[in-house]
């Protein structure tokens, strides 16, 4: 394992050139398409995804006794299937948790486990929620590890609790809510199949179906252009930025409700994350 990770580190450095090209493609000044460059990258890494580095770090973080209570998440964190159970957990999130009396997605639930369960300080965790080079995010590493444990498990949200159904309806309302200087809603860019912005393909996320399944099940993903593993909350937050609205608060209700809408629309899709994205 250690050797594989070292090899991967080396290839990551080589992959930097493609990563730069992929970053630039957003500005539209390139000759190859995003899909071509991503195909090159996949060919170079074969079955390996640099996200393996995040998964390995996430496993350590999950098992280590931390915080003022000196307990591990593996012993104390309930993601819905019981303390420490991660296999399949992500395929049933977001869900209602009785102890917080709230519907939570993975990111907000992890925050609860770290702050309430382990007694860690919330501020630095939230401040470092999105990693950047040497400043690594614990939440991204933990998410990668936990989601990897649901590989092959089908998304299944029974939505038996009234609050879960409410979260879905609210997420749907937000998805179609047009506002801001550009009149955009999520639906402006994500309610048809086969469309693109510049060269980026836009999945139809407005209804249950193949697009919604194929998209949701590969997130979190290793984002080649940023050299980081990004979670669904990051993806939604960055799309809100493009929508010209203010900044989405991490772990906020809008983030959870939208995730619920996207997750339910992906019902039946088999988890295949962490994926690999531009």
């Amino acid at each position: 394992m250690r050797r594989r990770i070292q090899q991967m580190r080396k290839r990551l450095l080589l992959g930097g050139v493609i990563a730069t090209a992929l970053g630039a493609s957003m500005l539209g000044a390139q000759s190859t398409s995003t899909e071509d460059a991503l195909a090159d990258y996949r060919a170079m890494f074969g079955d390996d995804n640099p996200a393996a580095l995040w998964i390995a770090r996430g496993e350590d973080l999950w098992k280590e006794a931390r915080g003022s209570r000196k307990v591990s998440l593996a012993d104390t964190c309930d993601l819905g299937l019981g303390d420490g159970v991660i296999k399949g957990a992500y395929a049933h999130l977001p869900r209602y948790f009785a102890d917080t009396a709230k519907v939570q997605d993975l990111e907000s639930r992890l925050l609860t486990c770290m702050v309430k369960g382990q007694g860690m300080d919330e501020a630095p965790i939230v401040k470092n929620r999105f990693g950047d080079g040497d400043r690594k995010s614990d939440l991204e590493a933990l998410s990668a590890y936990i989601i990897d444990a649901s590989r092959g498990v089908a998304m299944d949200l029974p939505m038996t609790h009234a609050q879960e159904r409410l979260a879905y309806e609210s997420g749907k309302a937000i998805f179609f809510y047009r506002t801001g200087t550009h009149d955009f809603s999520c639906a402006t860019c994500h309610s048809q199949s086969g469309k693109r912005i510049r060269l980026q393909e836009l999945p139809n996320l407005s209804v249950a179906g193949a697009d919604a399944r194929d998209t949701y099940t590969v997130w979190p993903a290793y984002r080649v252009s940023q050299g980081e593993v990004r979670t669904m909350e990051w993806r939604i937050g960055d799309c809100f930025r493009q929508q010209r609205v203010p900044e989405l608060v991490f772990g906020s209700q809008a983030a959870i409700d939208l995730t619920m809408f996207l997750a339910k629309n992906a019902e039946g899709g088999k988890m295949a994350a962490p994926g690999l994205k531009r």
């Binding site: 900044e247 906020s252 209700q253």
Partner: peptide, 13 residues
């Protein structure tokens, strides 16, 4: 509903 949830979920930036 969307407005109420979003009001509580965003900060000016």
């Amino acid at each position: 509903q969307a407005f109420a949830v979003m009001q509580a979920s965003f900060v000016a930036k």
